[in-house]
């Protein structure tokens, strides 16, 4: 009973950006989507949200094809925060968060006390209560990001899709945000660049390269120096943190061991060889 992708592929402008991906997150778990720029993380999130339709394969929500559901029905269960969602409208933070109530209200339905309480709690969760009456354009990048997260929380989702939610955030807010996401009783699928954050907060990580799933599993099994060298083309040292028991990745300058420096593209041929 969750959001699943089965063998989905999506061709965008002639390029296969998502290539036969299957994703079946355990309900309530936090899944990290990893991979370099252009590996298909954002595209996969668009498909999971139903904003784009796959060319082949299916996305299902509770075993119903997403394409057969009305947008409103999807939005009552699935919330998402994309990158670069900005506005010129003079809107205050509280009204941004209020947008999250949209799928739960009818065109002529009134404001309910319950809506107001959910909005306040969402603001509290991301630490924006004091800035609820501020105008959007006066917020910093990190505050905007948190406002979007609060908007998604106000949607009361069961599935939460986040595209690089820690962008623009300082380290404290990065940690707080992911801690919150991991603690929420939702299935969260989170595209992340920071491997250490993924290792700390994700139950499962899925590594994408050129639109394909390279490997998936618990961070401790997946995040190895070999994988990091293969997928990202960098040299890394992975240790186990004594306190958390989670892997910690330390990067080192220079090309991966045993490889001469060359473009990222070449790493595929190494893997398939």
């Amino acid at each position: 009973m969750t959001l699943k992708a089965q063998h989905v592929s999506w061709r965008r402008g002639g390029t296969l950006v998502v290539d036969g991906v299957t994703l079946q997150p355990a309900p309530g778990s936090t899944v990290g989507l990893l991979g370099p720029n252009g590996s298909g993380k954002s595209s996969l999130l668009r498909l999971l949200q139903g904003i784009a339709k796959p060319d082949s394969g299916t996305i299902t929500l509770d075993d119903t094809d997403l394409a057969l559901l009305r947008r409103r029905e999807v939005a009552q269960t699935v919330a998402s925060v994309t990158q670069h969602a900005d506005t010129d409208v003079d809107i205050v933070v509280r009204d941004v968060v209020r947008l999250g109530r949209t799928p739960h209200r009818s065109p002529f339905g009134g404001e309910l006390a319950r809506d107001e309480r959910i909005i306040s709690e969402a603001l509290e969760h991301v630490g924006l209560t004091a800035k609820a009456d501020r105008l959007w354009h006066t917020l910093s990048g990190g505050e905007r990001q948190r406002a979007h997260i609060a908007r998604a929380l106000a949607q009361e989702p069961r599935e939460l899709l986040l595209d690089e939610p820690t962008n623009h955030l300082d380290i404290r807010h990065q940690l707080e945000l992911l801690e919150l996401v991991a603690a929420l009783p939702v299935t969260a699928i989170v595209a992340l660049h920071d491997l250490n954050l993924a290792a700390m907060f994700c139950d499962t990580v899925v590594v994408l390269q050129h639109g394909r799933v390279i490997t998936a599993g618990p961070p401790a099994e997946v995040l190895t120096p070999e994988l990091i060298a293969d997928v990202y083309g960098v040299r890394a040292h992975v240790t186990r943190d004594d306190y958390t028991g989670r892997p910690t990745v330390t990067f080192q300058p220079g090309p991966p061991k045993g490889e001469v420096l060359r473009p990222l593209q070449a790493s595929t041929s190494v893997r398939s060889a």
């Binding site: 947008r71 919330a79 969602a85």
Partner: peptide, 24 residues
């Protein structure tokens, strides 16, 4: 007036509107 709420949801663009359940 019946579409007022949908129009509110367009503030952050069509992707956000779609994710809020608007048939864009």
């Amino acid at each position: 007036i019946a579409s007022a709420r949908s129009l509110d949801a367009f503030a952050f663009g069509e992707d956000v509107a779609a994710s809020l359940g608007i048939p864009v």
